[in-house]
Simulated assay, not measured.
Amino acid sequence: MMHRNLPGTALVIGASRTLGLALATELLRRGWHVIGTVRGHRHTGLHDLAETSGGRLTVESLDMTDQDQISALRDRLAGHDLDLLFVNAGIAHANVPVGEVTTESFTQVMVTNALSPLRVIETLGPLVAETGTIAVMSSRQGSITMNTNGGHEVYRASKSALNQLMRSYAARHAESSKTLLLINPGWVRTDLGGPGALLEIEESIPGVVDTLEARTGEKGLHFVDHQNQTLPW
């Protein structure tokens, strides 16, 4: 298996807080150069991290649900040769049966969790080196096989849609040598995961980066967890 020299340059989409901020922090700790995005122009923990990074972290503004902003970011990053593009995004509304979900809520979850990550990948993917990696934060809840308990129906559906769209992207780019990853970070105690989740962020993200680095050079699409275990579709 051919591995390019790591660490390199990573673009982390959605790095202002929780999992995304922890991902940027861990990549920096391992020697990567990181470009991290935040929504809007408010000061975030990512800005604080940049101030102590010795110039290895830069902050960009991006609302990834806005295609014009994605295109503008691509133009600003023209000439960069990325080794990793990591799209970290996810929202979940009320945990109710799908028949009780408003059209507006359903649309917002699907646009944020499935459509927008692929728009980012379609637009920014060409900046990633042929030996690089494109990764998206997915979830075991996107696995149809593993859905034996139900619940969180629209969130599950959005992650399944994300996985399916990545399968289509991989099929259209079958000749590419890039590594494509859908990563389940585990059930993590965040606003999204809730207080009853099994893992602290500090227990999840180092494993996510271990998996990223271990999978480097494996072309094609892989659906894996933070312990580098393959998940069923």
Rank of each mutant, 00 (worst) to 15 (best):
L6I: 13
A10H: 04
A10G: 06
L11N: 03
I13V: 15
G14I: 14
G14D: 03
R17V: 12
R17N: 13
T18H: 15
L21I: 09
A22E: 08
A22H: 14
A22T: 10
L23R: 05
A24P: 10
T25C: 04
R29E: 12
G31K: 11
G31Q: 08
W32Q: 07
H33P: 11
H33V: 14
V34K: 03
V34D: 08
I35G: 07
G36Y: 05
G36M: 05
V38I: 14
H41N: 13
R42T: 13
T44D: 07
T44E: 05
T44K: 08
D48S: 08
L49D: 01
A50M: 03
T52N: 03
S53C: 06
G54S: 04
G54T: 02
G54K: 01
R56M: 09
S61L: 01
L62V: 04
L62R: 01
D63C: 00
Q69K: 00
L73H: 01
L73N: 01
R76N: 03
L77R: 05
G79C: 08
H80N: 00
L82V: 12
A89H: 07
A92Y: 06
N95D: 12
V96K: 13
P97G: 05
P97S: 02
P97R: 05
E100Y: 00
V101Y: 02
T102F: 01
V109Y: 13
V111A: 15
S116T: 11
P117K: 10
R119D: 15
I121M: 09
E122K: 15
E122R: 15
T123N: 06
L127I: 06
A129H: 15
E130H: 11
E130C: 03
G132D: 05
G132T: 11
T133Q: 13
T133D: 10
T133G: 11
T133P: 04
A135S: 11
M137H: 13
